[in-house]
Design a protein around this nucleic acid. Sequence first.
DNA 1: TGGCTGATTTTGATTAATCAAAACTATAAA
DNA 2: TTTATAGTTTTGATTAATCAAAATCAGCCA
Lengths: 228, 228
Amino acid sequence: MLPSSTVENYLKAIYVAEAQLENGQRLVPMGQLAATLGVAPGTATTMVKALAESGLAAYEPYNGVRLTSSGERLAARRRRRHRLIESFLVQVIGMNWDEVHEDAEQMEHVVSDRLIDRIDDMLGHPESDPHGDPIPTADGQLPRRPLETLLTCPLHTPVTVARVTDQDAAFLRFIESNHLKPGETIEVEARDEVSDSVRLKGRRDARMTIGARAASKLLVTADGGRGL
Amino acid sequence: MLPSSTVENYLKAIYVAEAQLENGQRLVPMGQLAATLGVAPGTATTMVKALAESGLAAYEPYNGVRLTSSGERLAARRRRRHRLIESFLVQVIGMNWDEVHEDAEQMEHVVSDRLIDRIDDMLGHPESDPHGDPIPTADGQLPRRPLETLLTCPLHTPVTVARVTDQDAAFLRFIESNHLKPGETIEVEARDEVSDSVRLKGRRDARMTIGARAASKLLVTADGGRGL
DNA sequence: TGGCTGATTTTGATTAATCAAAACTATAAA
DNA sequence: TTTATAGTTTTGATTAATCAAAATCAGCCA
């Protein structure tokens, strides 16, 4: 009855892929799903058919797959667990934010609801995790904030880093050592299409230039207030 | 290469059963192993043969099974993880000692060594968990203390509760509400063979009588000092 | 309108863990 | 010494998750 961690991982991968679909697309293609999960395409097909059986996903042969509302509910619950555990590992255990992903990945499947609630209480019901990723409430609601990336926010205006949408440890260490973690106030000074880069003014007026791809992973709030 | 949680559970069950073997017995019978793991006898046979293949257990057909030294090493590592996690859940997260077993049971299989070490540091390298069970060191050594049960300790002498060898939640709550947790100082006033019971003087001279079976699960140190 | 190509699905096997039930041992009683 | 029985092992199947490779489909290009 309760979904295996394999099932939970498929739901998560579908959710993430759905959010990244271009323009009109509504279905995640099987090949992409199989690739992100690191399994053979046939395996993904078989598993997705099983998900469809149990009402967690809608599957159209040769077209792709998307989550049903109950699949989304499950995925949200799982995201909540993951993000609370990451927050906990960083804030309570004092692990670095670039080394918590793996442990959280494993623990989210096995920890009891009771322990999750306890952690939620301890942290004071946080709205987002150390990366700024929003934490769904127990009933699956997302606290929604309108965020912009460093590619779209206004120039020469103080903005607060709110979220870093990449879990890669090296990238996170880069963000940290340049004082670009959620909560920091920065300003975009210029964008250059040709060199594909963005110039920033950071803490203590430090200047730095980062690539557009990296810039797109830093989400900010336009006002100068606290991002959390 | 790294053992599945199923393998770890078999090792644990064999270890516990070995420690409980009567007098001259050196091997754990298959039937008993299967029963404690809740699997069919044939399943245990198959699995134990696989353990023997990989050098973790010594198996004698129709006689039984015991751990090899490398099996014991693995079991000790696993016990260390379990007990550190239980200690952590009680002392840091504030869960009750009667509700942590299940979570620890799951988490011990998945958390990273890095996190275990971090927990060990946070707790100050404790020698025993909240039940008083000793925590093996990272290289598998057990801090050994000579303990007696309430059935064997001297009468009319202050002793300190050091360990409670039963994980049953109801039993743990009983111990707690009667102030018999590890660290408490108590005295055995009398033992009665016929009624199969033991009379105690506890905190603030409270008198209570418990059954011999329960008394055998309370381990104490003869001196009046702190048990931890 | 074919026919090609790349993505998808099917098919047939494999591995780990399990069960039920049949076959087998070892020992203790007759 | 034979036999019953309790405990153990084997056998044949099952389930979840996976793979490789063969078969199939969809859409586009000519």
